[in-house]
């Protein structure tokens, strides 16, 4: 769109801008409260409800609203034995296309969902991070690709738990 007028801001445009500003303010105001919708992975809100779920299946459901199927196209890399459960290096890569998010679930932690990453267009669907594990546990990586969920799991033995005990 090119600018053709020289008469200052158009009244409707000003209205639109004001509207946008108040929406932005509302959004900020909502942040501290835990009323995020369950299917928060699709939008920009922090998925508060999903992070509160105790078990893995509930957390996946709260985050995505569906279940994941195991796939050998999701490669999860984690140590067999983690000496320090407070810092366990985990990474995941996938050959799947149209990936929109990657999430990590630690089954035996007090809350299963550990981290969820949004993968916009142009970002390589691979991520490495470090997670805490309370004890020996099943670890699941879920990749959302083309609207479907794919997962890979791995058992990690933890010798010293990551909860400070």
């Amino acid at each position: 769109m090119t600018t053709t007028t020289t008469t200052g801001p158009h009244p409707t445009r000003r209205l639109i801008l004001q509207g946008a500003a108040s929406v932005a303010l509302l959004g900020l105001g909502n942040l501290p409260f835990g009323a995020a919708p369950a299917r928060a992975a699709a939008n920009d809100k922090y998925p508060e409800e999903a992070f509160k779920q105790k078990n893995e299946a509930d957390a996946i459901k709260a985050l995505y609203g569906k279940t994941a199927e195991p796939s050998d196209k999701v490669k999860l890399d984690a140590p067999e034995i983690a000496e320090n459960g407070g810092v366990v290096p985990i990474s995941v890569t996938t050959s799947l296309e149209k990936v929109t998010s990657i999430s990590f679930f630690v089954a035996e932690n007090p809350n299963a969902l550990a981290a969820s990453y949004k993968i916009p267009d142009g970002t390589i669907p691979a991520v490495a991070n470090r997670l805490k594990m309370a004890k020996t546990t099943r670890l699941t990586a879920v990749v959302e690709a083309d609207g479907k969920l794919y997962s890979a799991t791995k058992e990690v033995k933890v010798t010293v738990g990551g909860c400070g005990g």
Binding site: Y46, F51, V87, V88, Y117, P120, G122, V127, N129, L131
Partner: peptide
């Protein structure tokens, strides 16, 4: 001007968090 990576974290991410990713463009 474009988000290239967004992380939502819970308490299970290690102290002094580390993350690695790659993007194009």
């Amino acid at each position: 001007g474009k988000d290239v990576f967004v992380a939502n974290w819970g308490t299970a991410v290690s102290k002094d968090p580390y993350v690695k990713f790659s993007f194009k463009g």
